[in-house]
Design a protein around this nucleic acid. Structure first.
Lengths: 310, 310
DNA sequence: TCGAAGCGATAAGATAATCTGATGATAAAT
DNA sequence: ATTTATCATCAGATTATCTTATCGCTTCGA
């Protein structure tokens, strides 16, 4: 009964993730036979089969299933040792892996990346853009240090702090300029263009209109940029977060208008694992991000909505 | 920033335990330079000093202090992977590390060791005798699988099951034979011999007599055997658990008597970590031990007390 | 039905990690 | 001042791990 090595645990984790020896080996930067051998030794050491090698795929056995979560806990803990060491020695140095949702990243990133590296030159910032659900998953698995998403996230294992809230503005064809801003009831009768499934901003927009099912047409866009282009082409109207206005309407012939009460809006915040050894630093970083966003925490002082054309 | 290897964590743990490179290396079955090197590499990998090497001793730095508990958690988790694998494959095989208190081990061990190995020949039973506090500590650290102690233990992280309860009998010089059994009030006036500090049986005996401070004399014995010998030599009287009567009074000229109401007694039970992967097996083993002890669970059917002489 | 392609296992030799034994350096104890 | 205890360092030996080449099996398309 030989205990597994950390190396074997890492390989096992990768293999469980990829379900494929070749790709897992590549992810570990080793050759496929090396991985096969280590997995085999781990199985022999434990005295049981971890994976079922069927012809077309590799799946976990019951034993593998029972162990994989524990293995991941172990790997996460080991990775965190380094974080703890760093935290107790040098307050702001080393890798910082930030995740962001796609409806925030392009607009917020340029502002904060400069500020952060200026204030903490030792910080090696790595950014990852993905949908909320994926970010939360990677965060929990210890593959991200923090994520910037729309609140609330409501995961008991995560700490969340609000950064700022941003209103949603109406984007409509240029010829609508000057006509009254529709109420949300009217909006429901118009052709409202949305992001595809999975984007939290889609749900936030739907929620504002009190529409809970998807609208009539299947014209979901994969980015705010596309949405605005579609409006400009006269396909319909859409909502975009205030922060995106300047970038996205610079090169599109559209009219932007602010809603009267109620103002649709959402709160953007930062989340991290409660157990993260970087907690203290992350709190400070959240303050920097807050300032970089150009708004006092939790409030908003938006410039008045204006018209734009190409 | 290189992550530590499991090997380094093991060495670090041993070093933290022993506070001495040479002895820690011996405990790891490696040479002292090998340990020095690995520790150094771990420190370099983490980017901080873990230990302070003063001339006469090795102590943990603040960082080492912060990490050692996490490291031990990791090592325990890794060790348990094997236990899980075994548990899910072969119900009763492999190492089983049992701890027992000294006032139970010599009398219970011979009975159960045979039964257990007969019923589970694949079981490699390792027994460790120590005081309750040490057993509980080792159990929590994952260095024991289970322990047999007097209940209650009241540790939230441990499961406890009662095995049997045993009365305490009075042991007095042979010439007292036939005289009335003293009440516990009378006992307080007699010269009551006890085990040394730390034995739970000492506290149980004191508690029966409603004495909470230690008695007048400092004549604490280190084993029940010694106690009985002292009584036989006329130094005083003592209590011993029923289970020890046969062995300990076989070669001593003493009289053994049972108390009237209230009967002093204690409950012996088995404890293990709630998270132990061997939980199911341990429950079954506790039943075997129960039977081996020769009494139905939770009850007692003792043979009547008799006199013994050398 | 047959050959091609994909995939994991195996083997042999190369490389890297780790260990041992000898020795050095430092500080406390005699 | 000398001895002793203790951890660090070095060179060479040993062990663990990796790579490349290749095998055998299964699936898929012609």
């Amino acid at each position: 009964m030989i205990n597994p090595t950390l190396r074997q645990l890492r390989y096992f984790d990768a293999l469980a993730r990829h379900g494929h020896f070749g790709r897992a080996a590549e992810a570990c930067s080793i050759s496929q036979p090396a991985l096969s051998m280590q997995i085999k030794e781990m199985e022999e050491g434990l005295g049981g089969t971890l994976l079922e090698r069927s012809a077309r795929q590799v799946t976990l056995t019951r034993l593998g299933e029972e162990l994989i979560e524990r293995v991941r806990d172990i790997l996460r803990s080991v990775d965190e040792l380094g974080d703890f060491a760093r935290a107790s020695r040098d307050r702001f140095a080393g890798r910082l892996r930030i995740g962001m949702i796609p409806t925030v990243a392009p607009y917020l990133l340029p502002r904060i990346i400069g500020d952060l590296t200026r204030m903490h030159p030792e910080l090696d910032i790595q950014v990852r853009e993905a949908l909320t659900s994926k970010l939360i998953q990677e965060l929990s698995e210890g593959r991200l240090d923090t994520a910037i998403v729309a609140l609330p996230v409501s995961e008991a294992s995560l700490t969340e702090v609000a950064l700022f809230s941003e209103d949603f503005l109406l984007v409509r064809p240029l010829e609508d300029e000057g006509t009254p801003v529709p109420s949300r009831e009217m909006l429901r009768e118009m052709r409202l263009l949305l992001l595809e499934e999975g984007h939290c901003f889609r749900d936030q927009a739907l929620s504002f209109c009190k529409m809970h099912s998807s609208p009539r047409e299947l014209l979901d866009a994969s980015s705010l940029s596309t949405l605005v282009q579609m409006v400009s082409a006269g396909v319909g109207v859409t909502l975009i977060p205030e922060m995106a206005v300047q970038v996205e309407t610079r090169s599109a012939a559209v009219s932007v208008a602010r809603f009267r009460n109620p103002q649709p809006s959402r709160t953007i915040g930062m989340v991290w694992r409660k157990t993260s050894p970087l907690a203290r630093q992350l709190t400070q970083i959240s303050e920097v991000v807050c300032l970089s966003a150009g708004k006092p925490r939790g409030k908003q002082t938006a410039p008045p909505a204006r018209n734009h054309r190409s």
